[in-house]
């Protein structure tokens, strides 16, 4: 790691003002992606602003038709939460499959979203449920939030504070995981709410994306067979030692069907 100065604000307000004042600063949430990046010297910020002491950004609230999760809430807390189990059980199961136990005990929702790893699980849930990402400045719809490889619409000085997930009639996440890294080779999140279907895919491309052709078919009939013949073209998909673009394209349909099947079984 290159040297950096370290700041540990106790409130969001303090964090925002530090972010404005300190040059070339990076926000640190759980650090389960960022610390390895620093060790590899892929990033060398002059300052780290550790959000870990900000209690107001933690916690889970189920109110009406919305499940709101604080940005610093850890994956293990989401996985074990009664409110998540009642509101969106698919989200609890997704959180329980991120990384390993120790990573889930430290990694956070907000950190995962700000990082937007192309194979991360949470972006699929946020896009697949049509959630809203709240920051200190604005509320950002999921369809606008993720913009590219490790990129989001977040601007300098902006901090994710919470995510508001609308409840779904039924939802499920099916992940074909890399057994070594536990990241998704392909993961598909499917949800249905009042006839409105969303299908979000992670792991397959440089950035999470929706498959609208599948959404239309599933809106007509919510069943695995409806999408058996819908293929995502491999042209823009990722290809690496784990899977070719053609194989990932194949997996998208398979995992989407499994997700639909699981969503049907959950209700």
């Amino acid at each position: 790691m290159h040297a950096f100065s370290y700041h540990r604000p106790a409130t969001l307000k303090e964090a925002v003002s530090l972010l404005r004042k300190v040059e070339n600063a990076k926000l640190l949430a759980g650090g389960q992606s960022l610390i390895p990046v620093l060790k590899l010297r892929l990033a060398s910020p002059a300052a780290m602003i550790d959000l870990g002491a900000i209690e107001e950004m933690r916690g889970i609230k189920l109110e009406g038709e919305t499940l709101t999760i604080g940005a610093l809430t850890r994956h293990a807390e989401v996985a074990a939460s009664k409110d998540v189990a009642i509101g969106i059980p698919a989200l609890a199961r997704l959180a329980d499959g991120i990384g390993d136990r120790q990573v889930r005990n430290q990694g956070t929702l907000g950190g995962a979203l700000a990082n937007n790893d192309p194979a991360a699980d949470y972006p699929a849930a946020v896009l697949g449920l049509g959630a809203t990402v709240n920051t200190n400045k604005r509320a950002i719809g999921a369809d606008r939030f993720f913009t590219g490889l490790f990129e989001t619409v977040l601007k300098p000085g902006e901090i994710i504070t919470s995510v508001a997930f609308p409840l779904a009639n039924r939802a499920a996440y099916a992940k074909f995981r890399n057994p070594a890294s536990r990241f998704a080779i392909v993961g598909v999140f499917v949800s249905e709410a009042a006839g409105n279907v969303r299908v979000a895919v992670t792991g397959a491309a440089p950035c999470v994306f929706r498959v609208k052709a599948m959404e239309r078919k599933l809106a007509e009939k919510f069943a695995p067979d409806s999408i058996a013949r819908v293929r995502v073209p491999p042209d823009n998909l990722s290809s690496d030692i784990h899977a070719s673009a053609e194989y990932r394209a194949h997996l998208v349909t398979v995992m989407a069907q499994r997700a639909v099947e699981a969503a049907l079984a959950s209700k």
Binding site: L28, G31, P36, D50, D100, R101, N105, Q106
Partner: peptide
């Protein structure tokens, strides 16, 4: 030292975490 192997697992606030993946300052 890359967060894979878990040999460095300790408890922080009752949570099992990998101590090579957090700064000492984060355990303040």
């Amino acid at each position: 030292d890359t967060g894979q192997c878990g040999a460095c697992t300790v408890h922080v606030g009752g949570r099992a975490v990998k101590s090579c993946l957090i700064l000492a300052a984060q355990a303040e």
